[in-house]
C-alpha cells in the first residue's frame, strides 16, 4: 500500500504513572520531554506499560516547530479553541494537557479540584478558588510531618470512599513561588516560567515519601476551605454549602451520574468541614494543626 502523505511520527515521548493514573506525552519538541524526564525521574512507568491517557504537544503547522514555536495541547480529550503556549512554557503545556485528560476523561474516581495531605492513614482535603493557597499549604505541610497526596486533584473512589493520591508536580503560582522556595530551600524545582496565562509558574518536585507511597489511599477525615489574605478566622460550613462547593470543585461529578452523587454526598455527610481565613502560611499551618488535633 502506498502512502499519499506520510504523517510524521511522534518525535519525542515520555510515559509516567502518577498515583493510579498512567500518562504518555508525545511532543514535536525535545525540551518539554527533557523537563518531564528530569522532574518525574523518580516516578514509575504506567501499569502494564499501557497509559490511561495520551497528551500531545504539537505544532499547528510544520514550520511552527521552528519559527516562533507555539505549543498546541492535544490528547485523548481536548477543549476546542485552546490557545497555544510558547515553547519556553512547554512543561506547563504538558502539565495542562495531563490535567485536562483527568478533568475531561477520568471516570474511575470522583475528581475534586482539591489538594490533599495524609497523616496516620487519614486525609485532609483542601479546596477553594485559584489563589486560595491550597497548593502552597499542601506543599508546606508535605514537609512538616504530612504526606503530600496531591496539590490539584483528590481522587475519591466511589466504591470505597477512600481518597487516592495524585502527587503530580506541585504547581506554584506567583507569590507562592518565593514563599515555598524560602521555606524548603533544599527542594527540587522546575524552571521558573514567567508571564504564562496563569501568571508566573514554578513546579516543585514532591518529597520522596509522597512518590514512594503514592499507591497508599487514605480515609478522608477533614475538609477545609482556605482563603488567603484575611485575618485569621474560622467557621463551620453547613452540609448544604459543602455540597454545593464540592459539586463546583468536581470536574466529573455530572459525568459519573449516580455513583458520583453517592460518593459526594457520602463526603458531605461524614466529613467535618471548616472555612479558614489566613494572612500567611505559618498562621494557616497552625490553624490546620489545631483543627486536626481537635478531630
Amino acid at each position: 500500500m502506498t502512502m499519499m502523505v506520510a504523517g510524521p511520527a511522534v518525535r519525542h515521548s515520555f510515559a509516567v504513572r502518577i498515583g493510579p493514573v498512567g500518562f504518555r506525552v508525545g511532543s514535536d519538541w525535545r525540551t518539554p520531554i527533557a523537563a518531564l524526564e528530569t522532574l518525574y525521574a523518580d516516578y514509575p512507568a504506567p501499569a502494564d506499560d499501557v497509559p490511561d491517557f495520551s497528551v500531545r504537544l504539537f505544532a499547528r503547522r510544520p514550520w511552527r516547530r521552528f519559527v516562533r514555536p507555539a505549543v498546541m495541547i492535544g490528547g485523548d480529550y481536548v477543549l476546542p479553541e485552546a490557545a497555544p503556549l510558547p515553547l519556553a512554557q512547554g512543561l506547563l503545556a504538558a502539565e495542562m494537557g495531563m490535567n485536562l485528560q483527568m478533568a475531561l476523561g477520568q471516570r474511575r474516581y470522583l475528581l475534586l479540584h482539591a489538594s490533599a495531605v495524609e497523616r496516620d492513614g487519614r486525609a485532609l482535603l483542601m479546596t477553594g478558588m485559584s489563589g486560595a493557597g491550597k497548593s502552597t499549604l499542601a506543599a508546606l505541610l508535605g514537609r512538616r510531618g504530612w504526606r503530600l497526596m496531591g496539590d490539584e486533584f483528590a481522587l475519591i473512589d466511589p466504591e470505597t470512599g477512600l481518597v487516592h493520591a495524585f502527587p503530580r508536580l506541585v504547581s506554584l503560582k506567583n507569590a507562592a513561588i518565593g514563599v515555598v522556595e524560602r521555606a524548603i530551600p533544599d527542594a527540587r524545582f522546575g524552571p521558573l516560567m514567567r508571564a504564562t496565562p496563569k501568571g508566573d509558574i514554578r513546579h516543585l518536585v514532591p518529597a520522596a515519601e509522597a512518590i514512594a507511597r503514592m499507591e497508599e489511599p487514605a480515609r478522608p477525615a477533614l475538609i477545609l476551605f482556605p482563603r488567603y489574605g484575611f485575618e485569621p478566622a474560622e467557621r463551620p460550613v453547613a452540609p448544604s454549602e459543602v455540597f454545593v462547593r464540592l459539586t463546583q470543585a468536581s470536574t466529573n461529578y455530572t459525568a459519573l451520574g449516580e455513583p458520583g452523587f453517592a460518593a459526594l454526598t457520602r463526603l458531605v455527610e461524614t466529613l467535618p468541614a471548616r472555612a479558614i481565613d489566613y494572612p500567611d502560611a505559618e498562621s494557616a499551618i497552625a490553624q490546620v494543626e489545631r483543627l486536626w488535633a481537635a478531630l
Binding site: A47, D48, D52, R108, A255, P259
Partner: peptide, 17 residues
C-alpha cells in the same frame, strides 16, 4: 492486561451513563 481491563471498565461505565 490489567491496566487495559480497567480502562475498558471505565469506558463501559461512561457509555452507560
Amino acid at each position: 492486561p490489567g491496566a487495559v481491563a480497567r480502562i475498558m471498565v471505565d469506558a463501559r461505565a461512561s457509555a452507560a451513563q
